[in-house]
Design a protein around this nucleic acid. Structure first.
Lengths: 138, 138
DNA sequence: TTATCGTCTGAACAACCTTACAGATAATCT
DNA sequence: AGATTATCTGTAAGGTTGTTCAGACGATAA
């Protein structure tokens, strides 16, 4: 990727370069940018927390392990839906399973996820801010 | 939603009730469950952090405000892509704009998002300061 | 004024994700 | 053994999301 000193310079001199206003700043921030794989992993983790059903499952698990059907009763999801959700969460080791007979007891595997949830909950609960408004922004 | 005492009881007695193993537990957890709107808002916030491009934008903004074209140069996204992403982030007030002439300088609006990012980056295994050293050495 | 610049937007398309249904699996009971 | 249970999985439909393209808008310079 070519970086020219200013947007104006880019337009004057070369063809398809990336326009930059503060080149030093861009260099500094790019130097601190985590590597792509870490950013991708981070996005995956946040993506797992981006579904209300999965969030309810994880909030339920904050209090300790639970079996699939109790999670279904707690969250309002179907048992199949809970199972699908837990499969996604099992992959990146967000939750772990303990199997006993034909029961499967799930619990939070990672304290970081617990912190993310707590932080998020205090954010939406304690800021007393209005309902989030995503669309229709002037 | 009907809740029967145990999965077996549900199968024996009634038709389409939600099966529950530990009824008291389910009641307790449901009592503590945040209301649906808060869970939805939480999922929206996490959803905004669920895209690598938006994560790079927000990481860049951790160091201070930036204009759109510098964000594009920093993150590798197109300027149009950055603008679309910033629109999403502007809605729930995750970022704010300061306009000066035809420039638009964006910055993080909410310290909670900053904390979420820091926590996530720690989870993934790298802090911004570690990155500095790594980048300096190659 | 005209030309250029930085930013924003709408539309279209592909890729993805969620959900529900049906069935499969393994453990347990009669 | 067969029936029942709790969980898991494959599949497909439907909706959502990210990206690109083309152009629009207001601000600025010539």
């Amino acid at each position: 990727m070519t970086i020219t000193s200013t947007p104006r310079a880019a337009a004057r001199g070369s063809d398809c370069a990336v326009r930059v206003v503060d080149a030093d700043r861009v260099r500094a921030v790019r130097a601190r940018m985590p590597q792509e794989s870490d950013v991708a992993d981070l996005a995956v983790i946040f993506g797992l927390l981006a579904d209300p059903g999965r969030v309810r499952i994880l909030i339920a698990l904050l209090e300790g392990e639970m079996c699939v059907c109790d999670l279904a009763a707690t969250t309002g999801l179907s048992e199949s839906g809970v199972s699908h959700a837990l499969r996604l969460l099992r992959g990146p080791k967000v939750v772990t399973v303990r199997r006993s007979g034909r029961m499967a007891y799930y619990s939070l595997a990672d304290s970081h996820v617990r912190l993310l949830l707590d932080l998020g909950l205090t954010h939406v609960g304690h800021t007393g801010q209005d309902r989030l408004q995503v669309a229709a922004n002037g």
